[in-house]
Design a protein around this nucleic acid. Structure first.
Length: 140
DNA sequence: GCCAACGTTGGC
DNA sequence: GCCAACGTTGGC
């Protein structure tokens, strides 16, 4: 199992909307590095949902419900989407500040590469963030 | 193939 | 709303 973090501006698509929808396809990725990460995702992988710009906090956990397929919103065959389902909202949203303050989270792309919208996390990083969110997950 | 110009992202 | 960082485009 692999671990990921995706970013979205809540004004475009919020965690709350995601929970309401129960499932969504993750479109709009137009960056090769982010796209390559999408392609690496396997069904069942766990994904943090981060609100950029407004809030700047990780809201909860999703899982990959369907592996990558061509982006239905464009004819450009370079781009792909995945399907995500909400798993659990964090009890405490984990702010960007909290991530920056944690000594073991200094190397994650959220900080180092602020413009990347889909990034991998290590299992250790995932667990730390889950703990910061005051949330537990079976099987992690 | 280099690099200047331009557009976009996202933190502040 | 500004601007730094970064990715992409296109002229040469």
């Amino acid at each position: 199992m692999n671990f990921w973090l995706v970013k979205q501006e809540p004004s475009k698509y919020s965690w709350e909307q995601f929970v309401k929808d129960k499932e969504t396809f993750w479109d709009g990725v137009r960056n090769y590095q982010a796209r390559n990460n999408l392609k690496e995702m396997k069904k069942g992988d766990l994904v943090f949902f981060y609100h950029s710009v407004v809030g700047k906090e990780i809201k909860g956990v999703a899982k990959v419900a369907r592996e990558h397929y061509p982006d239905p919103t464009t004819d450009d065959e370079r781009w792909v989407v995945i399907d995500l389902k909400p798993v659990k909202a964090f009890k405490n949203a984990v702010t960007l500040d909290a991530v920056k303050e944690h000594p073991k989270l200094q190397d994650i792309a959220l900080i180092k590469q602020s413009r990347l919208s889909v990034m991998p996390l290590t299992a250790a990083e995932f667990k730390i963030i889950l703990k910061l969110g005051d949330t537990t997950l079976a099987g992690v």
